[in-house]
Write a protein that binds this DNA or RNA. Structure first.
Lengths: 201, 201
DNA sequence: AGAAACCCATGACAGATGTCATGCCGGCTA
DNA sequence: TAGCCGGCATGACATCTGTCATGGGTTTCT
C-alpha cells in the first residue's frame, strides 16, 4: 500500500483527487494539506511514501515544498501536479529533486501510474511539458537581469525598480536593455512577459 | 435525478469532480467536455439539467459558453467554477445568465448543494467572490479605453496598439493617458495590470 | 597571470511615451 | 435645440526609456 500526501489549495480538486486515488487498491491518501507550510508540517508527522503537490499554492511554492521535503524526508518521493506548466518550473522542480511532473490535464489513470512509478524510484515527466522545456532552452539572462526583469513585471517605472533593487536607475536601464536585446522584445514589459512565459523569471 | 454536464479542460479535475458528484444519490454526470465548443455541442444533444463549466478553457470562455447555453438551451441552468476569481468575470457571468459562481476552493459538499440550488431555480455566488466584486466597484473606463488598455496588456508599443485598434497613435495615447489617470497608475502597463486585476478588461 | 564573464555606475542621445490643449463629429438627454 | 459625453484626431512639450560607449571592480576558469 502506497501512502500518499496530497497538497492543493483548491479544496474541490484536492478532495476529488483523493477520491480518485483512493479508488486504486494499492494507493491510500493518508493526509491532505491546503498550503505549502501545512503540507510540510503534515509530512513530517505522517511520513508518506509519495507527496503529490500542486505547483501554485498561497504561501510556499510547490517546488520549495519539494526541496524541503527532499532534505527533511528523503524517503518520500515528491511529484508535482500543475495547471499552468511553465518550462522554468519544470527545470527548477527537477533540480529540487522532484520525481514526477504532470499537468492537470492528464487522466486519473496516468496519475495513479505515475504515483506508482515514482514510488518505485522511477521518474516521469509529461512529454508535452518536457518538449516545451527543451524548446524553451536555457535562460540567457544573467541573475541580475532576471532580478530586474522580475521587478519590471508589474509595470513599475524604472526609478521604482531601481529603488527596490537598490541599484542606480542607469544600471537598471542597462540590465533591462540587455534583457530586451536577449529576448528580442521591443520594450521591457514585453521582455518581462516573454521571460515569464519561458519560466526564466 | 439531476442530469449534469461537466466542462473543464483539466482532465484530472473533470474526472475527479465527476467522481465526487456521482457519489450523490440525486446527481448524475451525463456528459463531459474538455473545451467550450465541445461543451456546447454536447449540451445540445444531451440536454442536461445543469451545466458546470470551468471559467478558463482553451477555446471558448466559460462565460461565452454560458451565454450560448442560456439562449439555445434555456431549460439548462449554468454554473461556473473557477480557480482565479476575478470580479469582472463574476459580473459578466451573471449578465450572461449564470446561476452559480464558485471558486474551486470550495468543498464537494458545497458544490453538490449549489448544483441542487441552481437546478431548483435559485442562485448562488461565493460570498468571498461577491465581496471582492462589490469592493472592486464598477469600471470607470469608457469602452474604448478598455479596448486599448487590453491591447496594452501584453506590453506592445503604442504604434502596434494603434494598428491593432485601427486608431491613430495619438488617439491611443490619449485613451491610455486617461486610463492611467483613472487607475492612479504611473504608466499604461501598471494601469493595464490594475484594470485586469479588477476585472475591468 | 590573463581572459572572460558578470556587477555596478555614469553620461549622452534618440526615440517612445505621458500630458495637455484644442477641435470636429455623432448620439443622447434635458 | 442646446448641452454633455464619448469617439477620434492633431500638435506641442516634458519626461521617460532604450541604446550605446566607457570604465572600474570582482569572481571564475584556463
Amino acid at each position: 500500500m502506497i501512502r500518499i500526501l496530497l497538497a492543493d489549495d483548491e479544496h474541490l480538486i484536492r478532495g476529488a483527487m483523493a477520491a480518485l486515488l483512493s479508488l486504486e487498491d494499492d494507493l491510500e491518501v493518508v493526509a491532505q494539506a491546503a498550503t505549502g507550510a501545512e503540507a510540510l508540517a503534515t509530512a513530517r508527522v505522517v511520513r508518506p511514501d509519495v507527496a503529490v503537490i500542486d505547483l501554485q499554492m498561497p504561501d510556499l511554492d510547490g517546488v520549495s515544498v519539494a526541496q524541503a521535503l527532499s532534505t527533511h524526508l528523503p524517503t518520500c518521493s515528491t511529484m508535482i501536479v500543475t495547471s499552468h506548466g511553465r518550462p522554468g518550473h519544470l527545470k527548477r522542480a527537477l533540480a529540487a529533486g522532484v520525481r514526477g511532473f504532470l499537468p492537470k490535464t492528464v487522466s486519473s489513470d496516468v496519475l495513479a501510474t505515475v504515483v506508482r512509478t515514482v514510488h518505485a524510484g522511477g521518474r516521469y515527466v509529461d512529454p508535452a511539458l518536457a518538449a516545451e522545456a527543451i524548446s524553451a532552452g536555457d535562460s540567457p539572462l544573467t541573475p541580475r537581469e532576471a532580478d530586474v526583469l522580475e521587478l519590471a513585471l508589474e509595470g513599475a517605472p524604472i526609478d521604482e525598480i531601481a529603488r527596490r533593487a537598490s541599484l542606480s536607475p542607469g544600471t537598471v536601464r542597462n540590465y533591462l536593455s540587455s534583457a530586451v536585446g536577449k529576448t528580442g522584445a521591443s520594450n521591457r514589459h514585453e521582455a518581462a512577459r516573454f521571460a515569464r512565459a519561458r519560466g526564466w523569471i
